[in-house]
Amino acid sequence: MSEEKKNVTEHEDHITDHDYDGIKELDNPPPRWIMLLFYVTIGWSIIYAAYFFWLKQGKHQDEEYAYKSAQHDEKYQIASLSADDLVAFTDEVSLAEGKQIYTEMACMACHGMNGEGNAVGPNLTDDHWIHGCSISDVFNVIKNGEPSKGMTPFKSQLSDEKIQKVASYVISLVGSNPANAKAPQGEVCNTGDNS
Score class of each variant (00 low, 15 high):
3 E>A: 15
3 E>G: 08
6 K>P: 00
6 K>I: 02
9 T>M: 13
9 T>E: 08
9 T>K: 14
12 E>V: 03
12 E>W: 10
12 E>K: 09
13 D>P: 00
13 D>G: 09
14 H>M: 12
14 H>L: 14
15 I>D: 03
22 G>I: 03
23 I>Q: 09
23 I>G: 11
27 D>V: 00
27 D>S: 11
29 P>T: 01
29 P>A: 05
29 P>Y: 02
33 W>R: 13
34 I>T: 05
34 I>H: 10
35 M>S: 13
36 L>A: 14
37 L>I: 06
41 T>E: 05
42 I>H: 10
46 I>N: 07
47 I>C: 14
47 I>F: 15
48 Y>T: 05
53 F>T: 03
54 W>V: 12
57 Q>W: 15
59 K>P: 10
59 K>N: 11
61 Q>R: 11
63 E>W: 07
63 E>T: 06
65 Y>S: 13
67 Y>P: 03
69 S>V: 08
72 H>C: 06
74 E>N: 13
75 K>V: 04
75 K>T: 04
76 Y>M: 15
81 L>T: 00
81 L>I: 04
83 A>F: 09
87 V>A: 10
88 A>D: 00
88 A>Y: 00
90 T>D: 08
90 T>M: 08
95 L>A: 09
98 G>S: 06
103 T>G: 07
103 T>A: 14
104 E>Q: 14
106 A>W: 06
108 M>A: 14
109 A>M: 10
111 H>K: 06
116 E>R: 04
116 E>V: 01
117 G>W: 01
120 V>K: 13
120 V>D: 05
121 G>T: 01
122 P>V: 02
125 T>V: 06
126 D>R: 01
129 W>I: 00
133 C>A: 15
136 S>D: 09
140 N>Q: 09
143 K>V: 01
144 N>Y: 15
150 G>Q: 03
151 M>Y: 11
152 T>D: 04
153 P>E: 01
153 P>F: 07
156 S>A: 12
158 L>P: 00
163 I>T: 01
165 K>R: 13
168 S>L: 09
169 Y>P: 00
169 Y>K: 05
169 Y>M: 05
170 V>N: 01
171 I>A: 14
171 I>W: 01
173 L>K: 04
181 A>I: 02
181 A>R: 07
188 V>G: 06
188 V>F: 14
191 T>D: 07
